[in-house]
Design a binder for these strands. Structure first.
Lengths: 358, 358
DNA sequence: CCGCCGTGCTAATGCGCATTAGTTGATGAC
DNA sequence: GTCATCAACTAATGCGCATTAGCACGGCGG
């Protein structure tokens, strides 16, 4: 077919168009527009001709071509393992996105959300698809679980990325939260209030975030002279009624729950508490390890806000962007790793235990 | 010792590597991997050699190069006029992002958030920067105000885009909400409850979204036999105390407020109502034109949820993505435009007016 | 024995830009 | 008058892939 463009539809201008218009070569245009030393050294008159032509044509560089020609394109990637922003998870991760977006925007960077790729990869069980992130200058990762192989390869190739959340694997740059200290502190507070028999409810699921909380809880218990032997309990979120009843029989006065992206443990326990007709903190103190500010967070049997600590997700997002930009800029040396402190939260679900006898 | 850095740091494989390994040309590799008719027609044995080599090398196509060569890379852009996701606005636009993200992910598309560009453009007052969106296959726009020029140019160039929100300019594809009908309905409901003297408080700021609400309110008033002459009032969010007092003197029993991204009118009025010690709906009915489900929405003097209607932001986001994909696929003809209905919301701030004498 | 038509593949080119190795003409040093 | 120097540019190449024109070869009809 004889391809005829619509009458007024000028093709988008390229450097060669500018070059022709200004009577120079495409290379010259590139040099001048990029403002390289070489470009600045050119004759003032030439530069102005080129700049004027560019202006007149409404030239804007093609970010894709720019990137291919191995420069940066001012785009950062955000890739998540586990479906990213689906409704039910939305609230728990949203602050990260906000932080990332905020800092990225402040730094003039655009953001590529690799959610389409991520979902496709998850469906097809194709871990290699992660490599699509190369479209960006660098990438942020998050999610409880990571397919190690493809990430390691990215690292080997020298592709800049930062993980949001602590990682065990050596050599991976990350920005995490100090769950260990924060969790220990929560337990210490409970102990100080007089709780001697308590439990930590976590999900079965293995992830550094869970492991850290557990370590912190155990450490906090030990420090307060509490026997950690029956402390840690795993759940998949079901059958919590029995568990709860048993705990009460054992004299448990406080339960510490981990907050995850699914919120299975928390939701399950909350429902069980409701069904048992208990009220917090009257009948039971409840502390949450990791609720994020302003999201969810209203406890069963009353609706008070959970006590525990907040994860500085937003700050993590911001820091991660900064680190990533440093990496992209070529800051070498040790892979940067950072742990942010978590803010303790005084919540209405935590109080001194009732005296055993009315 | 002078070790060799990263001995295993193979360069990321390209098609030419596969080609060498399989003893064919790069072109052949491309044909086969893309699964084109031509590729499928090749000798079965050759195909398998190539596929095996690709597998073995862990090949993944470079999206940037793909895009440069073929003008399609499964990425949609999202560009906003007015700072996008800044904290205070975050909640009011978040549902759009969710909807867009949701549908994009479902369609296997990645998302480029042009927030860095947008902010830079706003700061430098450089409307041409919008063109950066060309990095994507197509783009979604939203925001109350639009710089017309650059958008028109994109349209002229045949770049596919969809606006989220109704637009007056002809030829611009959009997905909007039917504010006119919804607003009229809100007024009709108030009238049916017995309100005869009411006001519509809008922001001074001109935008189709505001104009539509106003039109609906006026239309609704007329239909209910209410004189619209003193109905519409503009505000910049300040000095509302006087205004409120005057209204009460005039016998106003209900106020309708528009919801915008800044929320200036609503916040101002809410504060004034609080300061006047009024309670809704006891002393005054308050309807909100356009609160989004689950965000903000707790009225002054009591904390009931606002009555009014909801903007189906999420659905708009989803629809916009679908439309955009159709455009990209080359569906021609009339520029697609769609108006979604808004869901009426029964809120605690709307009730029948108190009898004048008690 | 020639032309013709597949089959199976490759060479060549372009996408839009960045970058490097020059080329050219003018100037100054000796 | 010769050569090094420098200013001001340009030619050429590559980034990794998609795409098209076309080549080599073999079989088949006439």
């Amino acid at each position: 077919m004889t391809e005829v463009r619509r009458a007024g539809a000028r093709r988008r201008p390229r450097q060669s168009d500018i070059a022709r218009m200004a009577g120079v070569s495409q290379a010259t245009v590139s040099l001048i527009l990029r403002g390289t030393p070489a470009g600045m050294a050119l004759a003032r008159e030439t530069r102005q001709r080129v700049l004027r032509a560019a202006e007149e044509l409404g030239y804007v560089p093609d970010p894709v071509a720019t990137r291919l020609a191995s420069a940066s394109n001012a785009m950062l990637g955000l890739y998540t393992f586990s479906t990213t922003f689906p409704t039910d998870v939305a609230h728990s991760y949203y602050p990260i996105l906000v932080g990332v977006e905020e800092e990225a925007a402040a730094q003039g960077q655009d953001l590529i959300l690799f959610t389409g790729s991520a979902r496709a990869a998850a469906r097809a069980d194709d871990p290699a698809a992660v490599r699509r992130v190369r479209a960006a200058d660098g990438c942020l990762f998050f999610g409880r679980h990571v397919p190690e192989e493809p990430i390691r390869r990215l690292a080997e190739d020298g592709f800049p990325f930062v993980y949001i959340g602590r990682r065990d694997e050596p050599g991976i740059p990350y920005v995490g939260a100090d769950y260990v200290s924060a969790s220990a502190q929560v337990v210490a507070r409970l102990a100080a209030l007089g709780h001697r028999e308590l439990r930590y409810l976590r999900e079965h699921d293995e992830a550094p975030a869970s492991a850290d909380r557990e370590e912190g809880v155990v450490r906090g218990a030990r420090a307060s002279g509490i026997d950690p032997s029956r402390l840690v309990v795993c759940t998949d979120g079901s059958d919590l009624d029995d568990l709860l009843r048993r705990w009460l029989d054992e004299g448990v006065t406080a339960v510490v729950v981990e907050q995850t992206d699914t919120g299975a443990a928390l939701d399950g326990l909350g429902a069980a508490v409701d069904r048992a007709g208990l009220r917090c903190p009257r009948d039971l103190s409840l502390a949450l390890l990791g609720a994020s500010t302003g999201t969810r967070g209203h406890a069963p049997g009353g609706g008070a806000a959970y006590g525990g600590f907040d994860v500085p997700m937003r700050a993590m997002g911001r820091d991660a962007v900064r680190l990533l930009l440093e990496l992209i800029a070529g800051a070498h040396g040790e892979p940067p790793r950072r742990l942010l402190p978590c803010e303790p939260v005084e919540g209405g679900t935590v109080a001194a235990p009732r005296t055993r006898d009315t």
